[in-house]
Design a protein around this nucleic acid. Sequence first.
DNA 1: TAAAATATTATTGTGTGCAATTATATCGTG
DNA 2: CACGATATAATTGCACACAATAATATTTTA
Lengths: 152, 152
Amino acid sequence: MNQPSPLNLDLQICRSLYSAANALIRAYRPLLEPLDLTYPQYLVMMALWEHDAVSVKTICDRTRLETGTVTPLLKRLEGKDLILRERSQEDERQRVIRLTRQGRDLKSRAERVPMEMACMELLTPKQGLELQRLSEALYRNAVARTDDKGTA
Amino acid sequence: MNQPSPLNLDLQICRSLYSAANALIRAYRPLLEPLDLTYPQYLVMMALWEHDAVSVKTICDRTRLETGTVTPLLKRLEGKDLILRERSQEDERQRVIRLTRQGRDLKSRAERVPMEMACMELLTPKQGLELQRLSEALYRNAVARTDDKGTA
DNA sequence: TAAAATATTATTGTGTGCAATTATATCGTG
DNA sequence: CACGATATAATTGCACACAATAATATTTTA
């Protein structure tokens, strides 16, 4: 029997996951374009719609993005008048990231995005839940290996 | 009953998938560093180890990366003396991407990477296969929606 | 209390990912 | 055969993703 090499591309889970994630982000693009948001920006906005006036660190935790990514991203959102970046009075190292009125108002338009994504039927609801469960397990284990960064 | 919002971050499959993919790439990093390769570069090298002397398009298809990503990446691999980028004689639009001796020799060192990744036990083998199956389904469906780019 | 350790955000530098576009070559059609 | 359509790789411009580092503030320790 011919044993496939461990380096065989079709055996690489990471390629599957990575390309699927990128493809999924691409699928979001036309839906987010009318909102003038990229996918990571959409993530950040969702975090703020859930809980406004939070620190950069909180946003990083909720979105699972790193500060090196989030800091310039927040600057761009501020440039679009969707958020304000203020200094915290309790702790001057911190920023308080606050939605503007436009930022808050955008939520109602954004509510269509998950619906429209579901309409694409990229996966069945069951498959989606299973994919999420496995992805979460992987994320948790990978993060646990590097440090104790237990995040939501 | 309080119905969670469709914009609830914890319900976003895409966040799970995206963060898991990024975390997995990060897990590869220390293993690929001694080889002086990034993960996408590793993908390209794997494609060439499987089948040497191919076009850029073939590499894009096998790695599922776009030419805008692959072209500069190949230039950097050439800069590391791992590949040669030649013009095809049959069709002058095309490049033939060829492994150098160093490029070929690197394969044996790279064969440890999948083993070492498995040792991390980020998922069970069963979970891994299931994750791959679902990711593949998602990738296929997402790609099919944009065009008929049926790829391996 | 002073100094060391840690936390927060920001920056720097590099490599990606991708939409739109370009230059050139090849293919298809009338 | 000439021309229009398409393909290939490359480029441009923008937004990420992240490791390493830096500036400043806060917490911890002795």
